[in-house]
């Protein structure tokens, strides 16, 4: 996974880049907005991390430029400010995620992987978490290499959950994924699909579970290996 990292603080940039490299990422470190935009034009990246405060302008401007060029690239913003307005502005400008300094490298790695799963350039890439994998092309799920049969709706639910691993997926979002605009559906129907997927995950011994956030939706989490 190739990541563009725009960070003007030399220590933060170098140490973070080395940790990301150690975690298997390919990192291009730049120190200014112009360099970042230049790199984006000449290379192809799977994700970008922008510090909001850059010497020649704000990371928000770089982000806006990325969105104007219709680059479908997941962007994570880093900030030392972290007020409510900064976060809202960042997300409104089109950031996919947001981290406040001082951040944990493990958190950054997890977020980048989640971004790749969710909005990765290679949509057809096989999604794999723990012992479970889902192939968006063949729409097949397998646990420990064993094929687990899924209905059409169930496969959509599984894909949605795996792309949003560790994040809340609301019932409305699930319904929108499963049903087309003119199809009638009930909350209960969505619950039934989730229930079936849950049983299949449990039955096949997948180290994934779907937890309920009552009143809101569900979160798929990877079971912690004891």
């Amino acid at each position: 996974m190739r990541v563009l990292f725009a960070e003007d603080d030399e220590a933060v940039g170098r140490a973070t880049a080395s940790s990301l490299t150690a975690a298997g990422f390919v990192v291009d470190l730049v120190e200014s907005r112009d360099d970042a935009l230049h790199a984006l034009k000449s290379h192809s990246y799977d994700a970008a991390v922008f510090d909001i405060l850059l010497p020649d302008g704000s990371g928000l401007e770089a982000l806006a430029e990325v969105r104007r060029s219709r680059l479908d690239l997941p962007v994570l913003l880093l900030t030392a400010l972290g007020s409510v307005d900064d976060r809202v502005t960042g997300l409104n400008t089109g950031a996919d995620d947001y981290l406040v300094k001082p951040f944990s490298i493990d958190e950054l790695i997890a977020r980048l992987r989640a971004l790749q799963r969710r909005l990765g350039t290679s949509v057809a890439m096989v999604l794999a978490v723990e012992n479970t994998s889902f192939d968006p092309t063949s729409r097949m799920m397998s646990v420990d290499g064993e094929h687990v049969p899924l209905s059409r709706a169930e496969s959509i639910v599984v894909e949605r959950f795996m792309r949003c691993l560790g994040r809340v997926v609301t019932k409305e979002q699930l319904a929108e994924s499963v049903y087309s605009f003119n199809e009638e559906y009930t909350d209960n129907a969505v619950e039934v699909h989730v229930h079936r997927v849950r049983r299949k995950l449990e039955g096949s011994g997948a180290k994934l579970s779907i937890r309920t956030v009552r009143g809101l939706g569900y979160i798929m989490v990877a079971d912690k290996t004891p």
């Binding site: 603080d9 220590a11 933060v12 140490a15 973070t16 080395s18 940790s19 150690a22 030392a80 400010l81 972290g82 406040v100 300094k101 001082p102 951040f103 944990s104 490298i105 493990d106």
Partner: peptide, 30 residues
């Protein structure tokens, strides 16, 4: 605000040299 950047640098440096399993101990303090 001014404390955030140096602490971020410190954390990045420390986490870059500390192996992943030991990070969780430091993470609590950070």
């Amino acid at each position: 605000h001014e404390l955030r950047t140096p602490i971020a640098a410190l954390r990045a440096e420390v986490e870059a040299i500390v192996p992943a399993p030991a990070r969780s101990v430091l993470a609590v303090h950070f």
